[in-house]
Design a binder for these strands. Structure first.
Length: 420
DNA sequence: TCTGGGGTCCTAGGACCC
DNA sequence: TCTGGGGTCCTAGGACCC
């Protein structure tokens, strides 16, 4: 048996941890650059605010109902996530952190337990310990645990916990679930499935998995089996990333090469930091830039380039050099750029590399210097020491109009309590 | 005026090998 | 007139997830 535990309206719930004044009020959290709605409190959902909706298109609703609006604060959400995950891991030795707000627990050692009661206990402890409301779905496969989680949220009597004891008993409920709400079935496949008469989770569970594999892919065939109660998707170890991406939309359009270069240099520096923090080396880098494709009157341009490093590296200076070199090749004058990004490619883990007798490894991989850099910036704050090419104009800076304090990760932003 | 930012896996097709 | 059979590796594109 598996449990899927996820945090309700996670980013909103994080904002509420330190700000009880917004409990019970409509709250939304925005994507980077304050663009789209990416988290909504139940009250905001009830007012008709849709997921992924651009803010400027629901400004009226926000104003009319005095909805609280927050820019996303990943330092805060990341830290709270770590605490939630740590507490949840104390309830089973087998787990898989699936996303910032979701974890699977393996419950194979709990065969004689009342899992629903255990779920309620877990739920209470997370709420009490961290003020985080969670929903818990329990089932014989990960896909059914996901579905159970869906019922845990929607059923008024479930108290946040729903258990699917076996796949046969749950069949009547599967008839109520549209096929596109199944984990692993996205929009494209749901259209194709509906075309051939498969409309509900029950319909899909009744399919022959060989047929589905032929018509779609092994992935969907696995989903069919999982719906039938045959577990095919195991808990996975946390694997290091294979690629690392850093990209941002600009607050306003950028035209100057020097400004774009500054942005790309900042993204590359940040990507290199992430790379070193997971103890990997990158084989190459991809750089991309693009104009605002929503703007129908501007002339459009979008391009990318991939470059290979001479040898694998985590040296910010080398990575920066290639990032700028790539940018030079794809940059064109006279466009209004809206977004840029870099991706470090084909990462190698554990710093096990093939040396090259023609390349001076000390130049390519200056670990001592990078360690010093990371330590200084770790101790005294981000960008205490930075590369000149990262600049100071920040013409490309994203919008971030209403960001809450980083209560957990910045000394000067700790919660202040006033006594009367 | 304003529209996010990360990831993964699978498959088909082409280039190449013997 | 007729032209095999077995592989691997790489890449781009498309699907999915949060």
């Amino acid at each position: 048996m598996f449990a899927l535990i996820d945090c309700n309206n996670f980013y909103v719930s994080c904002e509420r941890v330190f700000n009880p004044r917004i409990d019970g009020k409509p709250v939304i959290v925005l994507s980077n650059n304050d663009g789209c709605v990416i988290a909504r409190s139940n009250e905001a959902k009830a007012l008709g605010i849709r997921m992924g909706h651009p803010l400027y298109q629901c400004k009226d609703l926000v104003k009319k109902h005095k909805i609280f609006v927050y820019s996303s604060n990943y330092a805060l959400y990341g830290d709270i996530s770590n605490r939630v995950m740590k507490l949840l891991q104390s309830y089973s030795p087998d787990f898989e952190i699936y996303s910032i707000d979701e974890i699977f627990l393996g419950l194979s050692g709990f065969s004689n337990w009342d899992l629903t009661e255990y779920g309620k206990l877990i739920r209470k402890s997370i709420l009490l310990g961290l003020k985080m409301p969670v929903s818990i779905g329990i089932g014989p496969t990960k896909t059914l645990a996901k579905l159970a989680n869906h019922f845990a949220k929607s059923s008024p009597t479930a108290e946040g916990v729903f258990e699917i004891k076996n796949a046969i008993l749950v069949q009547p409920l599967l008839k109520l679930i549209p096929v596109d709400e199944i984990w692993g079935v996205g929009r494209q496949w749901s259209y194709r499935l509906k075309d051939i008469g498969i409309k509900t989770a029950y319909d899909l569970s009744a399919c022959n998995h060989y047929e589905i594999k032929k018509k779609f892919s092994v992935i969907l065939a696995r989903t069919v089996l999982e719906l039938q109660g045959i577990s095919c998707i195991a808990l996975e170890e946390m694997a290091p990333r294979k690629n690392i991406m850093v990209s941002r939309s600009f607050g306003s359009p950028v035209t100057l090469y020097s400004d774009i270069r500054e942005a790309v240099a900042n993204f590359a520096t940040r990507a290199a930091e992430k790379l070193r923090s997971q103890n990997s080396l990158a084989t190459g880098i991809m750089v991309f830039i693009r104009t605002n494709h929503f703007n129908k009157t501007d002339s459009q341009y979008s391009n990318s380039i991939s470059l290979k490093f001479p040898i694998e590296t985590d040296n910010a200076m080398v990575i920066l050099k290639y990032a700028v070199e790539g940018l030079q090749k794809i940059f064109r004058e006279k466009y209004r750029y809206k977004k840029a990004g870099v991706m470090l490619l084909d990462l190698i883990h554990g710093r096990v590399t093939q040396p090259d007798i023609f390349i001076d490894d000390k130049v390519m991989n200056n670990h001592n210097l990078m360690n010093a850099l990371d330590k200084i910036n770790g101790k005294y704050g981000k960008q205490t020491v930075q590369f000149a090419v990262c600049g100071y104009r920040k013409a490309w800076k994203s919008h971030q109009e209403n960001i809450s304090p980083s209560y957990m990760t910045q000394w000067d932003e700790l919660l202040v309590v006033y006594a009367n």
